[in-house]
Each structure stands twice: as structure tokens, then as C-alpha cells.
């Protein structure tokens, strides 16, 4: 398996004597170049799980294995797991070009190759004309595209997306979902995609998992998803069928 999490647990000290358990023995497996959607409500531990994989949070117990290599002790900068926040967090003092080039510059890439890769990426996200602009001069959708491009251009081993479309309007959101899917296919990216939106989870993921109160459940088939009450997929289907029939 390309990415394997084995019984990851995490708790934080709380005001009361009992620690707050955010993750409880979470395990998942993901094959190369696949996208897994993790569906869950706010505060269920999805972000903590992604941050632990990225190396931004330390797990209390469990093991992270990527390409057969244990990652637990590897610092964030050496994991090649790029984490994208909910909001398109661009470096505000750098232009669009420099934002995309950031990950390549810190890797001290040859300047000709850097120019070539950044130009190609700008072309791919259709922002070549905006290369010299600063982040505050872009729209929300454009900023999100730059954030994607900056992550994809470094060819990450795993891309960790933390509800990246949550702040976008429905039209931009749909466009961004399509853009992500095409980028993921083009660059053959392995992704963990966190969302609280069932439809988005279904659109984006080749695999789906759900998280409730720190417990992760990975579904092996569509049938298993249909019968899982915590997903509410059957309820959703029933609603739309009833709604459509009543409208006809």
C-alpha cells in the first residue's frame, strides 16, 4: 500500500481532568495516485489527522508508513506531503509567480527548470496574465488555483487538502473541483481530501472514509457506503427520489 496509517491516536489536555481524545486508533490505506475523501463534521478530528500526516502535529501513538518508509520521526519539510488549508493561504508578500515557485526555490532547483515548471503550471491554471500580481489582487477562486498550483508544482508524494473549497461559492466550487480532478489526473497525485459535504466527497474521491468523534471508518465498496448510516447516503438518495417524483 502506498500510504498506510496504523492506529493513529491523538489527545489534547483539557480544562477538566480527562484528556480530549481527538483521534482514536485511526487506520487507513490508500494506493498510489488515488484520492480518498474523508467525510466528517466540523471538529471530528479530520484536520488533526491531516496535520499529523503532514508532520505539523505529533501523534500520541500509531504509525505512518509512506512508500514502505516509516514517517513518524521525519520532519514536515522532508515528508513531501503538502498540506493545503481551508482558505487559500498564499504568501502575501510574494507575487503569483513567486508563490508558485516557492517550493522549487527552497529545493534550490536549477533556474531554467524552475522557470519552465512555473510557466507551465501558470498556463495550466490559466493565470499566466496574472503572474506579477500580488495575492490581494486576485479573486478567491484565483487564489485557490494558485494555492493548488504551488502545491502540485513540487510534485508532492501526498497532497493533503483540508476542505479547500469551503469558502467558495457553488459555481466556483464546481469549477475548482473539475480543475483539481484534471490536475490530479495529469500529475498523478495521491490525495487525502477532507470535506463535510457528502456530494463533494463522492465527486472527488476514488475512495471514501468517514470520521466521527475521532473514529475513522474506511469503506471498501459503494455498497458498503450505501448501507453505512453515518454517511447518510441512502437517506440522500431517498430524498432526491421523493423530491423528483413529487415534482413530476
Amino acid at each position: 500500500m502506498f500510504l498506510h496509517l496504523h492506529e493513529i491516536s491523538k489527545s489534547y489536555p483539557s480544562q477538566t481532568s480527562e484528556a480530549q481524545h481527538v483521534l482514536r486508533s485511526c487506520s487507513l490505506s490508500l494506493e498510489r495516485e488515488a484520492t480518498m475523501s474523508i467525510l466528517g463534521r466540523s471538529g471530528c478530528g479530520k484536520t488533526t489527522l491531516l496535520k499529523i500526516i503532514a508532520g505539523l502535529e505529533q501523534e500520541d501513538a500509531g504509525e505512518i508508513v509512506l512508500e514502505g518508509r516509516r514517517l513518524n520521526e521525519t520532519p514536515a519539510e522532508a515528508r513531501h506531503c503538502v498540506y493545503l488549508y481551508q482558505e487559500p493561504l498564499l504568501f502575501p508578500h510574494l507575487s503569483v509567480w513567486e508563490n508558485i515557485a516557492f517550493g522549487l526555490r527552497v529545493r534550490r532547483l536549477d533556474s531554467a527548470e524552475l522557470r519552465e515548471r512555473v510557466s507551465a503550471m501558470l498556463h495550466e491554471i490559466d493565470l499566466t496574465a496574472h503572474a506579477a500580481k500580488l495575492p490581494h489582487e486576485l479573486s478567491g477562486g484565483q487564489r485557490q488555483r494558485v494555492a493548488f498550483a504551488r502545491a502540485v508544482v513540487v510534485r508532492p508524494t501526498v497532497l493533503l487538502l483540508d476542505e479547500p473549497f469551503a469558502a467558495l461559492d457553488s459555481e466556483t466550487r464546481a469549477a475548482m473541483q473539475m480543475l483539481y480532478k484534471s490536475l490530479a489526473a495529469e500529475h498523478r497525485i495521491t490525495t487525502l481530501f477532507v470535506t463535510h459535504d457528502l456530494k463533494e466527497a463522492m465527486i472527488m474521491g476514488d475512495r471514501v472514509a468517514s470520521m466521527q468523534s475521532g473514529v475513522l471508518r474506511q469503506y471498501s465498496s459503494r455498497e458498503e457506503m450505501l448501507t453505512a448510516p453515518e454517511l447518510g447516503l441512502q437517506r440522500e438518495i431517498d430524498f432526491w427520489e421523493t423530491f423528483t417524483l413529487s415534482k413530476l
Binding site: R79, V82, L89, V106
Partner: peptide
């Protein structure tokens, strides 16, 4: 802090995060 974390996942070392992100900003 979040920008530094992001820079770390993009491969920036502690020194690079300070020098290229925090200080200029």
C-alpha cells in the same frame, strides 16, 4: 504561524521559513 507551517510542508527548512516567509513579511 500557518504560513510557516505551509512553507514547511512545501519543503522549507526552519531557516528558510524564517528568511523567506516570516522576516520579509
Amino acid at each position: 504561524r500557518h504560513l510557516e507551517e505551509l512553507a514547511a510542508t512545501l519543503g522549507a527548512s526552519r531557516l528558510q521559513r524564517r528568511w523567506r516567509v516570516s522576516i520579509p513579511l
